[in-house]
């Protein structure tokens, strides 16, 4: 397996790099070396506050696409997601074929992205969401349920476009390894990188990811305070803090986790998952027997009547004479 070998070597390389980085930090952090590759605007600030220095820089970039023949509702959901992620790139629709994995991998590389959100619509009604980290995996396939887009009028909140969201996770994410992995994946994909050029310096909305009934529920709320204009908020304002839902809403049902990006060994399979096709087929089957049952009942009745004829009524000819 060439892929695995490649991956292994990569992993080693990464580990070495990380180690180097760490050593570098430990040795050089007090000396405050000049930073050359960062944005020049931030340079005076980092110089003035050396405590914020860290070698880490989040360069996450997400490719967001969808399959052909996606329904308008799901397309709107995708556009909402695009508007929520300033660090994403939207691309053209992709034919949902078997070879879509390699196509997508190529595309992600071409767009120099590090992760991908792929909205796949099947039969015009089922939406699947692929979340993948791109060169080396992992990737997850979700079934998306309970979709509400931002356009719905009952979602009344609003927030800055491109402000970095707070990500809240329920503690159930730390229970199982697959939830832990999903949490890390979601955090990296949905978290806007610090100092991203399209991001805004304030934090006025919060994403909530909750596991309920083995599904991940997504909500997006605006944070509002009675006197949010004042820069200094105190405890009292904290008590009065309220949230207004902005949308979109969706519910992710994890189906499978793969080791690679859009493929590779299966690491996890949802044991409770039933595909919507299956459900529909069962429903159809239930309905289909109706006529056959009727006919059967009729013939049975006939047979029964023939087998047990009624006794002659003694008063039958009474009024005829």
């Amino acid at each position: 397996m060439g892929g695995k070998k490649r991956k292994h070597s990569e992993a080693i390389k990464e580990a070495e790099e990380a180690l180097l980085l760490k050593q570098k930090q430990e040795t050089e952090a007090p000396e405050r070396p000049p930073r050359t590759l960062l944005g020049w605007k931030k340079q005076p600030k980092t110089d003035s506050s050396p405590s914020t220095f860290s070698g880490f820089r989040n360069k996450e970039k997400v490719l967001v696409t969808c399959s052909r023949r996606i329904s308008f509702r799901y397309r709107h959901l995708m556009l909402n997601v695009v508007s929520l992620l300033p660090h994403c790139k939207k691309d053209n629709k992709i034919e949902s074929k078997e070879s879509k994995g390699s196509t997508l991998n190529e595309l992600v590389e071409l767009k120099s992205c590090s992760s991908c959100l792929f909205f796949e619509c099947r039969k015009g009604k089922d939406l699947y969401l692929w979340m993948a980290k791109c060169p080396s995996g992992p990737s997850v396939k979700f079934l998306v349920n309970a979709v509400h887009t931002m356009e719905e009028l009952k979602l009344t909140g609003n927030h800055l476009k491109g402000s970095r969201p707070l990500l809240t996770f329920s503690s159930t994410f730390d229970k199982d390894p697959h939830w832990q992995l999903l949490k890390e994946l979601i955090m990296q994909i949905f978290g806007t990188p610090k100092d991203h050029r399209k991001s805004k310096p304030y934090h006025d909305h919060v994403f909530s990811f909750t596991i309920a009934d083995d599904h991940i529920w997504f909500r997006n709320y605006q944070i509002s305070c009675p006197n949010s204009g004042a820069q200094k908020l105190d405890r009292g304002d904290l008590e009065k803090m309220t949230l207004i839902e902005v949308g979109p809403r969706f519910c992710l049902n994890p189906i499978k986790i793969f080791g690679g990006s859009f493929g590779g060994p299966t690491l996890y399979e949802n044991p409770f998952y039933v595909s919507p096709n299956q459900i529909r087929a069962l429903e159809k089957k239930k309905k289909s027997g109706k006529f056959a049952k009727k006919v059967k009942a009729k013939t049975r009745r006939k047979m029964h009547e023939e087998a047990n004829p009624l006794e002659e009524d003694e008063f039958a000819g009474m009024w005829k004479e």
Binding site: S54, S170, L185
Partner: peptide, 25 residues
């Protein structure tokens, strides 16, 4: 496999919270 992947995937431990902005409730 999942644990390995998580290790590969996750950011270094010393990354400050301001990069993540994630909160566990």
């Amino acid at each position: 496999g999942l644990a390995d992947k998580l290790k590969d995937l996750s950011w270094p431990d010393n990354v400050e919270w301001i990069h993540k902005l994630s909160i566990d409730i």
